[in-house]
Design a protein around this nucleic acid. Structure first.
Lengths: 188, 188
DNA sequence: ATATTCATGTAACAAGTTACATGATTAG
DNA sequence: CTAATCATGTAACTTGTTACATGAATAT
């Protein structure tokens, strides 16, 4: 039962969404949207096959007229039990691998203008994600307060992860705003 | 020249440290210390071999009396040029994969007490890293101000990455403090 | 006594990336 | 008319993880 992390990430997403196609999931796990897990469509289709043959998810084919047919998946009871068991295991520490920071660290011998551009791109991407998360938050909150949403049986957990995404992206924007003038001063 | 990210991460570390052994680097890239890149000793020894045979680093054997001999590496001019060229490329977006968040998302069907323990462990690990980064910051700052250190030709870049690590770990601690009471309330 | 630190590796395996392939529909 | 979206895959390749192996010196 070791090292099936992508699987559990898919399960936890299906738990919240109820049903989703491979394509839907590839959007959820895309870098531009994903809050705590990214995966390529290829990884997802491969894993979904395995999960289906292991009986942790089941597929239902949705016939569409103007769009290609799609297979939507949902968690089975066995899949839900597997996910529940996973919450009781010790999670692996997150492995950070940030190419932009490698560039910032090496800016002394490198190209400050290019690093500036990359930091600007990070700021823009982070700001866009932030706006996206804030829209979700407003939808979930409705007219409730933060404490009430956190206490909600279904959305409390997802809201905690959303709050993490929110503060992470805010931090990204703030760091980029700090770094940009420092790096600009290095452009010869 | 695609996908040699670990290599550039090693190069940028050697740029700051000057010289380091595989063992030294395995400490720098360990999850408990690493600011923006983690790698196992096995990855490092494998990559260091390749880097040496490609001439981007050179080794020097340091004979020790009470300790096993070690081979310390430093960047060559070719290695420095390669690193400089890397700073001008578009960095890949960081891939987030956080098992703890998967557990938090699934807490509704899972084990809230176990998830609480895991969040507590995150808080402790983040607090320890924060203290470690703050020690480094004090050392680098000396009696200078933040702006002066950022303007330092050699340490300005590394200080920017350190500041990012600092705010990231502060954010981790703050999120954990917010999440803990919410999750505790779920323990039946 | 026992565990941790120092110091370096090999081998097998699991996970993630990139390139390619198909083909209709709709938005600009 | 061109690009993006919807929708799913195969194949080859590169990275990253885990288990194992060695062996002396300190710290508890």
């Amino acid at each position: 039962m070791e090292g099936m992390a992508l699987r559990h990430a898919i399960s936890s997403t299906l738990l919240v969404l109820g049903e989703a196609s491979g394509y839907d999931l590839s959007k959820e796990f895309d870098g531009a949207r994903a809050n705590f897990w990214v995966a390529t469509p290829q990884q997802l289709y491969r894993e979904l096959e395995r999960m289906e043959s292991d009986g942790v998810i089941v597929a239902r084919t949705v016939e569409q007229e103007k769009r290609p047919n799609k297979r939507v998946f949902r968690l089975t009871d066995a899949g839900c039990a597997e996910l529940a068991a996973f919450t009781a295991t010790t999670p692996r520490a997150t492995a950070i691998r940030d190419e932009l920071m490698v560039q910032v660290q090496a800016v002394e011998v490198g190209d400050p203008a290019a690093v500036c551009d990359a930091v600007g791109a990070l700021r823009d991407a982070a700001a866009a994600k932030l706006a996206y998360y804030e829209r979700i938050e407003r939808t979930w909150l409705g007219d409730r307060g933060r404490a009430e949403l956190l206490a909600d049986v279904h959305l409390g957990g997802p809201y905690l992860t959303l709050l993490r995404g929110l503060s992470f992206e805010r931090e990204n924007v703030a760091w980029a705003e700090l770094a940009l003038p420092v790096l600009r001063a290095r452009i010869a």
